[in-house]
């Protein structure tokens, strides 16, 4: 067993609620590994939310036995100086979980943990929320009509502002103007306003994550970014005016750049983020650049929500080989953003 080293001023560290995700995949193993991770415990005070029995199963798979301060679902969180704390909702019927299978019970478990974590953040009891991977199918069993995490969060905390998913690699962030819509509807969904809105949110989130002077590259929509209007007019009619407007507002924004090389340019030229116009424009490049080890962050909510970008990895469940990297990065990003928000008194 590796006890966490004593931390300086534990009370100064951001408190992060970590919701256990789908119990049939690598989430329990990852949660146990996070609880035992020095880097994480030096940066945040963890409050893990889930069921103690499946956590222990994860710890057994990971070959760890992290120290926990366990409280039950009725206990107040105040005074949890000894982190990581474990809020045991005792909400999983272990016999209903088959390793490597999406089940309604698994979806309900992950949903309940996430809801509790969001409630704690919304009440100001924790500074940010993280979760280990969900299984979309299981989430749909448990929440008919389940769309994505943003929708879920907005419903759970009654948020009706503008929130967006960011995909984050160490080298570059990706934000997108449109997301889960048919490709044929993408062009019509673009407007200078929608692009400026995304740039504004991206700029703000980058600052929150510690980039004081964020630089953002914007992708074009059409092949070769339209090649001066030869292959489409959206660059000239929509994207360029949006970039001008964002610059007038003081943001450091450049483009539109041809989409097939915009990420290479971003990394080479030190842009902090790329704003893409549609889902696959960003996702293809990000996955080639190793996004499976990256982080997904929901920005624009009253508090940061972060999760590893990879999925439940049903194919390697139970083997203790799940890589902690992305989950650790998710915690550290949440910590930075929460710390910044605290200092700013947000």
């Amino acid at each position: 067993m590796t006890p966490s080293p004593p931390r300086k001023d534990a009370s100064e560290l951001p408190v992060i609620a970590l919701a256990m995700g789908d119990p049939a995949g690598i989430s329990p193993e990852l949660t146990a590994k996070l609880a035992a991770d020095d880097t994480v415990n030096r940066a945040v005070r963890l409050v893990i939310i889930g069921d103690r029995r499946i956590f222990d199963e994860g710890a057994r798979i990971a070959g760890l036995s992290p120290q926990l301060h366990v409280v039950d679902g009725r206990s107040p969180l105040e005074g949890l100086a000894t982190a990581p704390a474990f809020l045991d909702l005792a909400n999983l019927a272990l016999e209903a979980v088959d390793q490597g299978q999406a089940t309604p019970a698994g979806g309900e478990f992950a949903s309940a943990n996430f809801r509790r974590a969001l409630a704690l953040a919304n009440e100001g009891q924790v500074d940010a929320v993280c979760f280990t991977p969900f299984n979309k199918k299981a989430m749909r069993y448990a929440n008919p009509g389940y769309d994505d995490e943003i929708r879920f969060v907005a419903d759970a905390i009654g948020f009706d502002g503008k929130a967006r998913e960011f995909n984050i690699l160490e080298s570059v962030w990706n934000a997108r103007v449109t997301s889960h819509i048919p490709l044929k509807d993408v062009a019509a969904a673009l407007s200078p306003e929608s692009i400026v809105d995304e740039l504004t949110l991206t700029h703000r989130c980058l600052q929150q994550a510690g980039h004081d002077r964020p630089r953002i590259a914007v992708a074009g929509l059409n092949p070769h970014a339209g090649d001066g209007g030869s292959f489409g007019m959206e660059e000239i009619d929509i994207i360029e005016p949006a970039i001008r407007r964002a610059r007038e507002q003081g943001m450091d924004v450049e483009g539109p750049f041809p989409a097939d090389t915009v990420f290479l340019r971003a990394v080479k030229e030190g842009f902090h983020a790329v704003l893409t116009m549609y889902h696959d424009q960003g996702q293809i490049a990000m996955k080639m650049m190793g996004f499976d080890s990256g982080v997904t962050m929901l920005g624009g909510l009253p508090f940061p929500v972060c999760t590893p970008a990879h999925g439940t990895a049903y194919d390697i469940v139970g083997r203790g080989i799940a890589d902690l990297g992305a989950s650790r990065q998710a915690l550290l990003l949440a910590s930075r953003m929460a710390g910044q928000a605290r200092r700013a008194g947000v």
Binding site: A187, G232, E234
Partner: peptide, 11 residues
């Protein structure tokens, strides 16, 4: 498809 505006790809 090759050098088409994105709005015309689907059709």
């Amino acid at each position: 498809t090759t050098h088409l505006p994105l709005s015309r790809v689907a059709e």
